[in-house]
Amino acid sequence: MDTKLAKYILKRLILAIVTIFLIITITFFSMHAIPGGPFLSEKSPSAEVTAALEAKYGLDKPLGEQFVEYLKGVMRFDFGPSIKQRGRMVSDIIKEGFKVSMKIGAVAAAIAITIGLVFGSLAAVFHNKFLDKLIMVLSTAFVAMPSFIVATFMLLVFCVELNLLPANGDTVGGLVLPVIALSLYPMSYITRLTRSSMLDVLGQDYIRTARAKGLKPSKIIFKHALRNAVTPVITYSGPMLAYILTGSLVVEKIFAVPGLGKYFVSSITNRDYTLIMGTTIFLATLIVILMLVSDILYKIFDPRVDLS
């Protein structure tokens, strides 16, 4: 069993490394496939200036050599200088932005998991009652709503109409809405997951035994049932964090949060190639690692799962 698990982890690890390498390769070569190169803008600089710039950024070397150089840089978390924001390193921008994004993301994930688990369990306990139906309708609706729609509606209602919260994400109060906007979709998804797995678990014999020996219902649900019902949520945690990371791209744009997403979106419009490359590689690697960890955790938590 343990060798099987180790084999599985090794297999996934190799896959993850190949994937990350592929991501770097795709990013690098697709950015270099762009006709005109990064210095082609509205007012094209003269040939000498372009040549000097290319020499400065190492763009005059052959492509293969550039790729090896870039790969070496990535290993050291060095994505080179930003092309449009003069004098700043891409890795510094990523670090700075990610600090903010991580805060929002972590809070959103925590909220989504806690409330999702509670609502899902409630829906399962009150199966087919009014509460269950209400929770299901709401979660179905929120699953269908793209995060940017949720975010804009919130902006409209809470900032424009009611004027309750600041629309600017620079302040602490301004972070409330982005967090809610990001957490609604995963929250609804976790609610649905928990509900269906909880319904499964509640029908099992050991729950009946627990009831028969007179345990309190709250203890049965939260101690005995939830523990087994939670495994699908663990598998979802990887995709959820990926969703929150990419979802934060637009949500941060809408609420003007100075996080990684905002830099990424503006780097797309500015054509700041090194920043696009750096952010893509950073986020993608992060997502691949998160997926890997959540998959491995799932296998460890639920030994019944087939490892083949």
């Binding site: 994937t19 991501i23 496939a33 762009i34 990926a242 990419t246 893509t280 993608a284 691949v288």
Partner: peptide, 20 residues
Amino acid sequence: IIYSLPDMLMIILLSVVLKI
């Protein structure tokens, strides 16, 4: 491998490149 690529990010990247 393709499955484990983060789809949204790759889409954004490829759209940027392909669009140009």
